[in-house]
């Protein structure tokens, strides 16, 4: 215990720095995947068969394979197989590759949630809008959108909480996120080596972060409870 307290001033800043990288990946994924998911959802629902089939195939592959493998392929394939290291070197390159993998993976999950949300709004809502002389666009934005959002907030919240922890998968391509930072003290860095507790301690970061998000997303859900 004494040792931990002694090492704390060195370990915490390192973990904080790692957590910043975790947070960055988390935010980039959300900002990219939330809208991209809508595009993919519309693709999957398209009446143009080739497009909807292709989109569904992509969704199947992305959701049917581990994110970890997607990360490895996206990061290493261009450089090692195609001899064209498009991601560049160092932490910047790793972050770029991880961002692409995460955005694409999560967009596919969001797309399926959106699709369910869009299709769950009863047809009567659209028909009521039509007989009142509204355009399809007006019906989407003024009638259906909020009902959709209400339906998708719980499952999207679930994905967001999962994403908090999934960011740790980027450790596999050595992105210097919080787990990587904790592990560094096992191998030895800044005069500390063979310490396992910093790695265990990273769990606290995830726990606090997901706790904060749970409260915020719960508030959003509550805000939409004024109608049924």
């Amino acid at each position: 215990m004494e040792l931990i307290l002694e090492q704390m001033p060195i370990v915490l800043p390192a973990l904080n720095a790692g957590f910043i990288q975790t947070l960055k990946l988390f935010l980039v994924t959300l900002v990219g995947a939330l809208p991209l998911g809508l595009v993919i959802a519309f693709g999957a629902m398209s009446r143009f068969k080739p497009l909807s089939l292709l989109t569904k195939l992509v969704i199947w592959i992305v959701r049917g394979t581990p994110l970890m493998i997607q990360l490895l392929i996206i990061y290493y394939f261009p450089g090692l197989v195609l001899d064209n290291p498009i991601w560049g070197s160092g932490e910047k390159g790793r972050f770029l590759a991880a961002s692409v993998a995460f955005v694409f993976n999560y967009a596919c999950y969001f797309a399926e949630i959106y699709r369910g949300g869009i299709q769950s709004v009863p047809i009567g809502q659209e028909e009521a809008g039509l007989v009142l002389g509204m355009t399809k666009t007006q019906i989407f934005f003024r009638v259906k959108l909020l009902q959709m959002i209400k339906r998708i907030v719980p499952p999207v919240s679930n994905e967001i909480i999962t994403l908090v922890k999934d960011t740790s998968l980027s450790r596999i391509i050595a992105l210097q996120e919080v787990i990587w930072a904790g592990q560094a003290f096992m191998k030895g860095t800044q005069g500390i080596s063979g310490a396992i507790w910093p790695l265990f301690f990273t769990a606290v970061y995830y726990l606090i972060f997901s706790g904060v998000l749970t409260v915020l997303l719960g508030k959003l859900e509550q805000k939409l409870e004024y109608f049924r």
Binding site: G124, Q125, E127, A128, V143, F227, R228
Partner: peptide, 10 residues
Amino acid sequence: VFQSFNLFPQ
């Protein structure tokens, strides 16, 4: 006027 009203819930 529909059988199931189809009011906009929000």
